[in-house]
Amino acid sequence: MNLLRSATLLRHLALTLLAGFALYLLSLELDPFRNFQLATVAAYLCATAGLTVLTGLSGQLSLGHGALMAVGAYTVALCQNTLAEHDVTGNGVLPLSLLAGVLVTMAAGFVIGLAAARLRGPYLAGVTLAVAVAVPAATVTFDELFNSEQGLGVYVEPPPLSLGPYFPNERWQAWIALLGALLTMLLLANLVRGRFGRTLRAVRDDEVAARLSGIDVARAQVQAFVVSAAGAGLGGGLLAVLAQSVSPGAFSLTLSLFLLMAVVIGGLGSLSGAVWGALLLVALPDLAHQVSSGLVASSPAAAQRLEGNLPLLVFGLTLIVVMIAMPGGVQGLLHRVTGWARRRLPSR
């Protein structure tokens, strides 16, 4: 037990395995639609976890993570389709495509990071905002390759036959996405607990002090961007696999803003906060739809006006409430509640 406590890697591995096992059991119990939602949460989690490392730990704002997800998604789509055209199919192909998606997005993140390391505050926000707008526009400019706003279909292999002919496709999708998310969480958790995480925190808290301690600030910031881009690339790639299609409309500026809101509401800088954020991204629109469809009976006109707009409203309100009532986000609140409970209850 002491070994688990002292060795961070071992502890994280054990936790990941446990979480993976629990999620596996959960996926067996859930109906297909809930499994699809679970898969979507997992895909978003890859991106929000990456973003929380960037914004929460290294203190760099990014309004362009939706665009980085698009880079991953389009890479996966092009890889999958090209390989399928050349009759390279099978379940081993998808991990390769996803890896390619992550690598290409990391390269994109490196380039943006180089520019970002020289900028602060609103200027940094401006550059990343430009990325969020430019990447979807690029799909229109190079329409021969990306098929403009209509986007591309993504070839995805059905679940292997060894699982049985009636195996629900959604459960298979959930497994793929959860595997990606768990891997991301494991790697990021190790990274932020170690020297890299300390360096980032030092840079965030005081750049001058960090520099005096011998930290190469610009380098650390670029590294943070690359790591964060990897998460976004994987998340985007997984979304492409889930939707079996990619189009610029799915990776608009709104998505970038939603991702940022999600990590802030979840609790900036903590990986558990990223989980809450990803959950909210999927749960809030669903909840809002239920509210507006509940309204249909009483007032159809109001319901029609609210449908689609309500999630935005709820998200905005949640953000304001969270900022006022609990600046640490959901995770911060939980932390305070458990702390309070621990003080109140006599120690065992």
Partner: peptide, 17 residues
Amino acid sequence: GYNPANTQTVVRQLVLQ
């Protein structure tokens, strides 16, 4: 909202739920 990603979700909701 004419967003293919949303279509995926709502059609699954209609069919599966």
